[in-house]
Design a protein around this nucleic acid. Sequence first.
DNA 1: CGCGGATTGCTATAGGCAACAACATTCTCT
DNA 2: AGAGAATGTTGTTGCCTATAGCAATCCGCG
Lengths: 136, 136
Amino acid sequence: MRDPLARYPGYSLRRAANAMSAELAARLAALDLRQADASALMVIAANPGMTASALARQLDIQRANMVPLLNRLEEADLIGRSPIDGKSRGLELTSAGREKCTAAQSVIDAFEADMIARIPEQHRAHLLPALDALWR
Amino acid sequence: MRDPLARYPGYSLRRAANAMSAELAARLAALDLRQADASALMVIAANPGMTASALARQLDIQRANMVPLLNRLEEADLIGRSPIDGKSRGLELTSAGREKCTAAQSVIDAFEADMIARIPEQHRAHLLPALDALWR
DNA sequence: CGCGGATTGCTATAGGCAACAACATTCTCT
DNA sequence: AGAGAATGTTGTTGCCTATAGCAATCCGCG
């Protein structure tokens, strides 16, 4: 079978991202978390009191799409929202949220380590800077 | 704003793939093609007569999800299907499909070139092998 | 001080993509 | 011939994202 797509870095990028995403999603499912949930928890943990809008900007998610995400996290008692002014509310982790977040950290750290281990050593150091150049 | 996600290659991989995917999708939209369509056209062009199942395996798409994709391509008169035996049908490009495919090739080649140009030169050669190690 | 524009949070709706289960038909191999 | 595999298809579900629009609130400039 001829594979005309093999030589395209863009195609490999998509395939690699899909494969890694699927694996991480599977690992996070054990914690009842989606990837977006875990990212949100970690960013909130590092920036307590931030607004939903700021979180959306940070994660490059549309404001509209934060709503179900945050509702889900609040529903699960992982985050709380307290009024900053009339319209904004600050986000913070509950204690359950902090526990869940450290658990997620462990899962993600293990995942990242496994992922990096799969890359031939001479290429490893180049991956992050190359990827960052594509979107930062 | 502290960004605890910055140090994770896996996160960068996801973000980079999303960014590149969005850009390619936008460029292909000018041809009325989705990414999956373009991939399918290129693989069929390189392997005329292949079956839908073989294409699904090649692209790592579930058999079931090939149906709407191929129907769309056939609807647009880009591919044809001719019976191989009682149950299998071989896929081939129509002449419009061949034109569309070469047009897609141009778009993708330009896209890949632009993408690679954004990567600092000392990292470029390492990207493809590193990515391939993650999914091949 | 007040007003206009920007920001915030939210609803509703849609599309792209992929996963899964199930099914009938047909092929292939022993 | 019969068992098991492959093929094409349907229907359903889930996740993620995008867009448009709305009401409430905030803020800076005149």
